[in-house]
Design a protein around this nucleic acid. Structure first.
Lengths: 160, 160
DNA sequence: TATTGTTATACTCTATAACTATA
DNA sequence: TATAGTTATAGAGTATAACAATA
């Protein structure tokens, strides 16, 4: 199947032509991220005092109790010192704790505290509600399809 | 229509569970961006000596000759000093030029030089080729759908 | 008064290098 | 030798504040 002709080539905000950039996935991801970042900053960041990276890290720890910091670094494609700094902050706020592993004493196993689990849960509820509201212009099928296709692109990481 | 059950909730790289994050658009955008950023860094950044922001800015100037810096700032959702710095770099490399507007003497109109137009064109060809190669696992319809849905999300910027 | 653009400055995020402890 | 994690440090990228010129 041939790729169909692409529609109106103009940026959402600036009314600039973007015929070329329209077909570039990286650019469209960046533009869409402007929207989700703005939503997050406006309605979630202050309320829960969680920056995007903190929220993501906390949620991954909640869902993966006992996971190591090295695994988090790989999952988020950031450096190890980076993870250390973020975990430091979450630990100071008593949202997660480090536990020495018995089997491999180099490893730090991470667990979320009850406080951390509660905060992550509340933040998630807020984000989902917020995105649901903002994405009303997309049908449920479109929203589902978008998430699945993005997940598929994310999965390509192993191949590059 | 109800949203269908979501499939395997694991991160592409780290094999971490992410049941919650799977439904969060902001997270999936970030994960997909890891892939496109890696592709760009690996195959385009060095070859053309253009960082992502520089490529985007240059391309927008190529496609919008005479546009102002204020419009670029809006289109990319960054601050004015930021745009000044990026344009400075592109101008030093003789890829774009600033021109004083006659009608509004506060405004700087931007134009790409022949050199800038050529470089942008070459970089675009490379990026498209690279993304095509990397996205082979997605059908043409899926790729088209993804770009359209992302554009639709980007267009929501006006509404938030 | 408001807007365009610049300069000065500081903050956030991330990375590399060097190190310790362990495997 | 290689890996997990930390510390120190530097580099991107971005933002706010203050300013000049113009509308």
């Amino acid at each position: 199947m041939a790729i169909a002709k692409l529609p109106t080539p103009s940026t959402p905000a600036g009314r600039l032509h973007e015929a070329t950039l329209h077909s570039i996935l990286g650019y469209q991801l960046a533009q869409a991220s402007i929207v989700t970042n703005a939503l997050y900053t406006k309605h979630t960041a202050q309320v829960f005092d969680l920056r995007p990276a903190e929220y993501t890290l906390l949620t991954l720890v909640v869902e993966n109790p006992g996971g190591s910091m090295a695994r988090l670094a790989k999952a988020l494609a950031v450096s190890a010192p980076n993870i250390t700094a973020w975990v430091d902050r979450l630990e100071k706020r008593e949202l997660v704790v480090r536990e020495k592993s018995e089997s491999d004493k180099r490893t730090q196993m991470l667990r979320a505290t009850a406080k951390g689990i509660k905060l992550a849960s509340q933040a998630t509820a807020k984000i989902l509600e917020m995105e649901k509201q903002a994405l009303k212009g997309l049908s449920a099928l479109e929203q589902y399809t978008l998430l699945e296709l993005l997940h598929k692109v994310g999965s390509l990481r192993a191949t590059i």
